[in-house]
Design a binder for these strands. Structure first.
Length: 206
DNA sequence: CACCAGGAATGTA
DNA sequence: TACATTCATGGT
């Protein structure tokens, strides 16, 4: 089991560069999550598409204000109502469809997120990808951050970083995901921490 | 006022 | 494969 030095070194590099332990995301990753928090991650994964996190928080606050604190409750909302609630996150017409569809899928097929978490990663990924509004990045974000599955998330920050560091020129999703996964030990905590660092680093580059 | 912020689906070449 | 377009709000 030979590992790619460059990727491991990149991790060490980012660790040194962002050693401030107050990186909020990193701390959040280390905490054990409740089921509610996991469901919130699923919701956030849809809402954050093409939007900054601040707007997502407004939408999530609205959900809480309305007492919508679970996927089950979302699954039973009327689309109109959901639209109103999540409006601050932008793209509310499409996102409300995606979110309702995803919530119904999970609730109908698995009941709750605990059951979802027990599913096999590969099969679950395929199922998520078949849903409208869920591409590779969103599917993998759900798998990694909501379900603690060891799946590396590739985003624009990852692509930029890999290019900037001159590690390789290919940028397709599957290629980069494979590069990271074969270079690192299969550990969801490591993947979460690494990806969080990549995002922190990407934001600081501007 | 113009542009951007942690995407995905669809269509075109 | 690689772009271009659409969806839509709030911050700077």
């Amino acid at each position: 089991m030979k590992r790619n030095n460059k990727i491991e070194k990149l991790y060490q590099l980012l660790k040194r560069k962002h050693n401030s332990p107050n990186a909020q995301w990193s701390l959040w990753c280390k905490r054990k999550k409740t089921e509610r928090e996991r469901e919130e991650v699923v919701i956030g994964a849809i809402l954050t598409q093409r939007t900054n996190w601040k707007n997502v928080e407004r939408a999530i606050d609205n959900l809480k204000k309305e007492g919508v604190d679970s996927l089950n409750k979302i699954a039973h909302l009327k689309i109109r109502k959901l639209q109103e609630i999540i409006k601050p996150a932008g793209f509310y017409k499409t996102k409300s469809r995606y979110l309702l569809n995803l919530a119904r899928f999970i609730v109908k097929k698995y009941g709750n997120i605990k059951r979802l978490k027990k599913e096999k990663t590969k099969e679950l990924r395929q199922e998520l990808l078949r849903l409208r509004g869920i591409g590779e990045e969103t599917a993998d974000s759900i798998l990694l951050y909501a379900l603690d599955k060891p799946v590396f998330v590739v985003d624009e920050y990852t692509r930029r970083l890999i290019k900037r560091e001159g590690i390789c020129r290919k940028t397709s999703y599957s290629f980069l995901q494979n590069l990271f996964e074969k270079s690192l030990r299969k550990d969801f905590r490591l993947y979460q921490d690494f990806h969080a660092l990549i995002v922190t680093d990407g934001k600081s580059e501007k």
